[in-house]
Computed example of a mutant assay.
Amino acid sequence: MSLDQDADDWFVRMRGPDAADVRAQFEEWRSVPAHAQAYERRVRSFDTMMFLASTGTVRKRNLDIAKPWVLRTAFRKYAAAAIGLMLTGSLVLIAAQRGFGEPQSLSRMEVASLEDAPRHISLPDRSKLILDRGSRVQISYDHNQRRLRLLVGRARFSVAHERTRPFIVEAGAGRVIAHGTLFDVELTQSAVRIALLEGAVEVRDASGGNGRKQLDLRAGQRTAIEGGSVVKPTSIAAADSQWPNDMLVLGGVEIGEAVAVFNRTAPSPVLYELRSSRPVRVTGAFRRSDPEGFARQLAATFGFRVEELQDGSFAIVDGSRPET
Rank of each mutant, 00 (worst) to 15 (best):
267 P>K: 06
245 N>E: 11
228 G>S: 03
234 T>Q: 12
263 N>Q: 12
231 V>L: 14
263 N>S: 00
296 R>N: 12
250 L>C: 08
234 T>E: 15
219 A>V: 01
253 V>C: 05
227 G>V: 09
254 E>F: 00
251 G>R: 12
282 V>W: 07
260 A>I: 00
297 Q>K: 15
293 G>M: 03
236 I>D: 04
274 L>T: 12
269 P>H: 07
284 G>Q: 00
307 E>L: 11
238 A>T: 10
229 S>R: 14
283 T>V: 02
236 I>M: 03
238 A>V: 09
272 Y>V: 08
224 A>H: 06
274 L>P: 02
302 F>L: 05
287 R>M: 12
265 T>A: 13
232 K>V: 09
293 G>V: 05
241 S>G: 15
271 L>Y: 15
283 T>E: 11
269 P>S: 07
265 T>S: 13
263 N>Y: 00
226 E>H: 00
305 R>V: 04
276 S>T: 14
290 D>N: 10
283 T>A: 15
229 S>D: 10
304 F>V: 13
300 A>Y: 13
287 R>Q: 14
230 V>K: 01
287 R>V: 00
265 T>E: 04
255 I>V: 14
295 A>F: 07
234 T>N: 04
259 V>N: 12
239 A>G: 06
227 G>H: 03
232 K>I: 02
272 Y>D: 05
241 S>C: 11
293 G>L: 02
254 E>P: 09
260 A>S: 15
301 T>Y: 04
289 S>P: 03
277 S>A: 13
243 W>P: 11
279 P>E: 07
260 A>R: 14
266 A>R: 09
275 R>P: 03
257 E>L: 14
250 L>E: 05
257 E>I: 01
219 A>F: 05
275 R>M: 10
284 G>H: 01
257 E>N: 12
277 S>E: 14
279 P>V: 03
261 V>W: 13
277 S>G: 06
292 E>N: 11
